[in-house]
Write a protein that binds this DNA or RNA. Structure first.
Lengths: 229, 229
DNA sequence: ATATAGTGTGTATTTTTTACACTAAGTAAT
DNA sequence: ATTACTTAGTGTAAAAAATACACACTATAT
């Protein structure tokens, strides 16, 4: 950071914490910065809110520009505004999170040039992050931990067709603890949002599990209500 | 709004939704605006974030300036940033809520001049609000409804010593439904944060109820955990 | 055929939630 | 002092939900 940087008088930005699930691990999307400050550091994808955008629109645009993804369930969760959080001036940032499934057609597409590259990194082994992004990420994880207990957001992380074991796996990863298989199935089925398919898992070298998808209509109803894990 | 108003290029503000309980009703604090836009309308108390303040500091300062209150538990809950929410330009606002007890020494003190007056108004009979403040309030109420189910915030609304009936009353008002007296007491006592006092209610024209206060130490522990109503 | 790895299922126990009604205690009016 | 009034305070039974727990089944690979 030896060059002289322009001073930002007062800027409002959005940062995205994208949780992705590839069927095995929980990951988040990070970019490697190509510009000062924090050149070469890993950071959350984020950008400045445009003058004529709503916040949600802006978040969607930023997500799209950085990942090529559209139509993702995103939600704002916290504003970070420490006066010193950005070395170039006052930047208040609003954090959004999204939960998405990885793999298949949902691969990452090239992104804007201020990043050298973008990558999904497993949350169990994160590098040091730029700015206060570690704090933003921590709060985001905390948020989805709380949220997954009361609302059926786990489905967002799974492919359209999934097995009950995969679903349980997501819960275990997010909550950070083991769950009992029989009790988990009893409960999740009692919510009545799962539809059992006539189809089985393929390409596994053991007994194939039944595939399920969730009933969007019933899911939408459930969404307003409280559930509990 | 006939005069020409200055244009605000990009401003970041904080608005406060203060829920107050006077022992009977749930109220919120509103000010009557003395300036355009929305002159003479009721509005949430709010102001612009200073260049060197953190968000929480700023919220506390604004609350203090407008009410004389200090040391209140406040929490940010949502950012509102529709490009047209403010007629003078782009104003993104961060909403905070607070829960406070009314009466006693906690009376409202005179506030800054951009308001004609400030008043606690019962939430059952609110006037039309300036800007998008109705939306901000609605979201705030929704937030504390959710929150009161999982965290023991109801105590914030009560005086130091209170009766179980008063506590139940708060829950009923916030949740908007009747609760069973015996079941309520069983549950609230099971949390183990209440301390029964040797003292009785005074000045009532019927059998005086036992007063309780809550054990701050145990309360703090409980705060991290999940409870359920 | 056999070893392997994950699938899929039931029951008994404990805990939590719900529904429900009367007596006790203090005040006010006569 | 009796009575009327108003809220305080209490227990139990039934239903529902959460928990703990173990083994046979099935597809594949060798």
């Amino acid at each position: 950071m030896e060059q002289i940087l322009p001073h930002l008088d007062s800027v409002f930005s959005i940062d995205c914490v994208l949780f992705g699930f590839d069927g095995k691990e929980l990951k988040i999307l990070l970019i490697e910065r190509n510009e000062e400050p924090f050149k070469d550091w890993w950071a959350l994808p984020g950008n400045i809110v445009g003058p004529d955008e709503s916040l949600d629109q802006s978040a969607s645009r930023i997500l799209y520009e950085l990942t090529g993804l559209r139509g993702i369930y995103m939600e704002q969760y916290y504003a970070f505004g420490d006066p010193n959080r950005h070395p170039q001036g006052r930047v208040i940032t609003l954090a959004y999170y999204a939960l998405i499934r990885l793999g298949g057609d949902k691969e990452l597409r090239p992104i804007s040039t201020y990043a050298k590259r973008a990558n999904w990194l497993p949350i169990t082994d994160l590098p040091k992050l730029a700015f206060d992004h570690q704090k933003i990420y921590d709060k985001g994880l905390e948020k989805i931990k709380r949220r997954i207990k009361h609302q059926p957001i786990a489905f967002e992380l799974l492919p359209e067709k999934f097995t009950l074991t995969q679903l349980q796996h997501v819960y275990e990863l997010v909550l950070g603890k083991k769950l009992d298989k029989r009790n988990f199935r009893k409960k999740i089925i009692s919510f009545g949002v799962l539809k059992e398919l006539d189809e089985k898992q393929k390409g596994v070298s053991y007994r194939a599990a039944t595939l399920y998808r969730f009933d969007k209509r019933k899911y939408a109803k459930l969404f307003g209500k409280e559930i509990s894990f």
